[in-house]
Design a protein around this nucleic acid. Structure first.
Length: 460
RNA sequence: GGCCUGGUGGCAGAGUGGUCAUGCAGCGGCCUGCAAAGCCGUGAACGCCGGUUCGAUUCCGACCCAGGCCUCCA
């Protein structure tokens, strides 16, 4: 089985072959830490995290970097408003980012480069671009000269002419050409800045990713991932800077772009204000259901974020964990990932198909009567779940989810369930039903089994 | 306006030139004191119009609709 990835560069699925057989390199554009991120920001980390796990299974070594951009005008603005150094802002939100991603089951990358730790590399890259004629200094700025890179626009499929013709933004007077973008810009005394050949200043938006990729991986990386909204201008500019700084060597060989999360059919975005912060969503829903929701559509498709979607994911997990609960007595060790799940993932990360395969395995497992067969299927279910970052908790923990912090006390629920059981055994069904109804009103569903009663937190 | 996606059953969402996606919800049955869970069975789809083909939801073209990027954005 081999991995196929849809490459934004060619707009086609391509077999993935790493540049060096012994090492795969992958870079995901991480957050600019000026605020809490929203649930849409988690889609890339979740699906590309699944890709990272997949690559680790199929190649001897993966080095996966996800950056933190910790210098930026929005950070500066927040720092000025709160009268604190930018580090106070960036430390706080970088920590929150890690915490929220962790809650969603996103693995930490191997490397987490910070832009402010790469200022010398950024300056060096600017100098090289100036020396080679691809950039120029003007009024304390360093600008990339788009016209020196004829392939500019290749990734996002747009021509320089069209962009210049359609330019709506006022062009700064120091730009030679309207499409030129800033690599370095001057800082006023109240803004953070670093000494440079062009005076005290700070990096522009795109250069940090180029510099960090180079620092971590060298001139050419295998896979570069990010949201489709970053394709232009961010990724296009990264390509231009890196290729020109490296004498024409390719920058990223495979570009992967994830689709946007929508709210009522519109992109969830900070500028539109139609966002759900991750901590808000986590407060109201099981994290694993949110993770499942983020992979419920193929990563390149847009995904409508609704309460109904989350509820459906909770029910889906109820069923999968229900299967595992039924198989609780079957002992299994670590197993191989079922072929149906793995082949779906190898086909451009087709998570919906992988989930369908998982559902099929669960159904087979419930029907199987032979213990050896049940063990095999349970092992496959757990291994397939692990590949997706799902199904790794104790089923009992899933069904009792949120009782401790949701104002419900598991021991008290147990006591009520026992009361009902006693009433039942006394054939006082009216009382038993009254207790069950009361618990249902608290969101607890009681189920009777041959082994005695059990309960779970109901899907909303 | 330019460039680019996509329109699949009640909902979500894969996929395919000619037999099944899958999940949730629904319906009938089994089980249950009654339920729930589970099991068995079951209906239901490919935006619109042409074309290619023995045959198209799948390929081609036009049209309609929705969304994204062109400005900070995952």
């Amino acid at each position: 089985m081999s991995l196929t990835l849809f490459n934004s560069l060619s707009r086609k699925p391509e077999p993935f072959v790493p540049l060096h057989p012994d090492r795969v390199t992958m870079y995901v554009c991480g957050p600019t830490v000026y605020n809490y991120v929203h649930i849409g920001n988690a889609r890339g980390p979740v699906v590309f995290g699944i890709l990272a796990r997949l690559l680790r299974r199929h190649f001897p070594r993966l080095v996966y970097a996800r950056n933190i951009t910790d210098v930026d005008d929005k950070i500066n603005q927040a720092a000025i408003e709160q009268q604190v150094p930018i580090g106070t802002i960036t430390d706080k939100f970088a920590a929150a980012y890690r915490e929220h991603m962790g809650a969603l089951g996103v693995d930490l990358p191997d490397l987490e480069p910070h832009a402010t730790a790469h200022i010398p590399q950024i300056i060096a890259m600017c100098e090289r671009l100036i020396e080679s004629g691809h950039a120029y200094a003007a009024e304390g700025h360093v600008l990339f000269a788009v016209e020196t890179y004829p392939e500019y626009g290749q990734l996002s499929r747009r021509s320089t002419d069209e962009m210049l013709a359609g330019a709506r933004v006022e062009v700064a007077p120091y730009k030679r050409s309207a499409g030129d973008f800033v690599l370095w810009k001057p800082s006023t005394p109240e803004l953070p800045g670093w000494d440079s050949p062009w005076g005290r200043g700070r990096p522009g938006w795109h250069i940090e990713c180029s510099a960090m990729c180079e620092a971590a991986f060298g001139e050419t990386i295998d896979i570069h991932c990010g949201g489709i909204d970053l394709q232009f201008p961010h990724h296009e500019n990264e390509v231009a800077q890196s290729v020109c700084a490296h004498g024409g060597k390719p920058f990223a060989r495979y570009w992967l772009h994830n689709g946007m999360l929508n709210m009522d059919g519109r992109k969830m975005s900070k500028s539109l204000g139609n966002v759900f912060r991750i901590d808000e969503v986590l407060a109201n829903h099981p994290a694993e259901a949110l993770r499942l929701a983020l992979m419920s559509a193929h990563y390149r498709q847009p995904l409508d974020w609704t309460e109904g979607l989350i509820e459906q994911c909770v029910r889906t997990l109820d069923r999968l964990y229900g299967t595992l609960r039924e198989l609780a007595s079957i002992q299994v060790g670590a197993g191989a990932i079922p072929e149906t799940v793995e082949s779906a993932l190898l086909d451009d990360l087709n998570t919906p198909q992988a989930l369908a395969a998982l559902a099929q395995i669960a159904a087979d497992a419930r029907r199987a009567s032979d213990d050896a067969e049940r063990a095999r299927l349970k092992s496959g279910l757990l291994a397939g779940g692990l590949a997706l970052g799902l199904l790794q908790q104790d089923p009992a923990a899933w069904f009792a989810r949120g009782t401790a912090d949701g104002g419900l006390d598991a021991a008290a629920i147990d006591a009520r369930v026992q009361e009902r059981q006693a009433a039942k055994q006394a054939r006082d069904f009216a009382r038993a039903d009254a207790i069950r109804k009361q618990l249902a009103e608290q969101g607890i569903e009681v189920e009777d089994t041959p082994a005695g009663p059990r309960w779970k937190v109901a899907a909303k």
